[in-house]
Design a protein around this nucleic acid. Structure first.
Lengths: 180, 180
DNA sequence: TTGCTCCTCACGTCACGTGAGGTGGC
DNA sequence: TTGCTCCTCACGTCACGTGAGGTGGC
């Protein structure tokens, strides 16, 4: 059962390379109880079976779904503590269903952002041909060039406000300002 | 110019409430040079003009686009250092165009994930009616129930691997393992 | 012995959260 | 004086990154 083919065990660096994570990340997963080497060599080297690759990829998948590592911990705990297979599966299903709704929300938000960016880029394209090409940024906020659109996109409009918040040149030491 | 209507200035808590950020966050933006109160009261209270609301909302917008606060710093620097309005606009456009491509990538990934979740949830639905309802989780990985699909979804398959990595019960002190 | 990989601390980063202990302002 | 808001440290969180100083293994 636990004899033979030890030559197939991976060292942490090899495991890291094959899943695209750093050694540090794998150490972290171990600290959190998410991953565990099958064995340690005489010198203390971590040695992993091939299944660990699948395991880490599964962790990565959950992370990409927006689960934090502590959440993944709880997820495993839930699963292991479930009284039976079907009841465990129900809990897992609920978590996934919730994440599905969340994901759809996120997609919608990103699509809004996408449109926002498209508009902003289109608006900024028209600045490229602006004459006189040497006019200052301050005048950009309120230019009267034809930008082929009615309203300034929010993302561009914010830039005009950049200045009121800056220091004049260098912070002037307090006092001596009202030199009468 | 800078007289009158002081009663319109906001305290930091009011500003925070109106943009949906915490006071701590606004302090941080100030530390990073992204925000600055118009004035301080005699007692040291930060006082903001109404434009700060627009300003913070703009920061939030950039954050939601995936810019980090240090990136937003650089963004402002770029803009302010640009030799002219049109050249500044060109730089901004390039950054936005890059972010647009990134956003589209992200959307695609999330849509893949969405499909993944839909499949997994559908698969798990079929577990609800599984009989015998008391069988253990270990047998879930390799059950022969009809899940109406050929392959086990990756998100579900990973669960079966949960166990090989767990401690047996309590960590056994080293040695004494090979009791011959 | 050299070179590569590994080991365990332990501090740094990012965008805040969360008190601690003290004070302004009505 | 009470209550609310504010102030400045300063440490905690999350998922690692990045050395420091030391050792295994071929």
């Amino acid at each position: 059962m636990n004899n033979g083919d030890k030559d197939k065990l991976l060292r942490v660096g090899e495991l890291a390379k094959s899943v695209g994570k750093t050694v540090r990340a794998l150490h972290l997963y171990e600290e959190l109880g998410l991953l565990r080497p099958t064995e340690r060599s005489a010198g203390g080297y971590r040695l992993y079976a091939a299944a660990s690759v699948t395991r880490v990829n599964w962790i990565i998948k959950l992370q990409s779904m927006g689960f934090s590592l502590p959440e993944i911990q709880g997820f495993l705990r839930d699963w292991e503590e479930a009284s039976s297979g079907p009841s465990g599966m129900r809990r897992v299903r609920d978590v996934f269903a919730a994440k599905l709704a969340e994901t759809r929300q996120t997609i919608k938000q990103l699509q809004q952002l996408e449109q926002n960016l498209v508009d902003s880029v289109a608006y900024l394209e028209t600045c490229g041909t602006c004459e006189p090409a040497t006019h200052t940024q301050e005048s950009c906020g309120c230019c009267d060039a034809d930008h082929k659109t009615d309203s300034t996109p929010e993302l561009v409009g914010g830039l005009a406000l950049a200045h009121p918040h800056r220091a004049t040149t260098i912070d002037v030491p307090v006092g001596n300002l009202t030199e009468r």
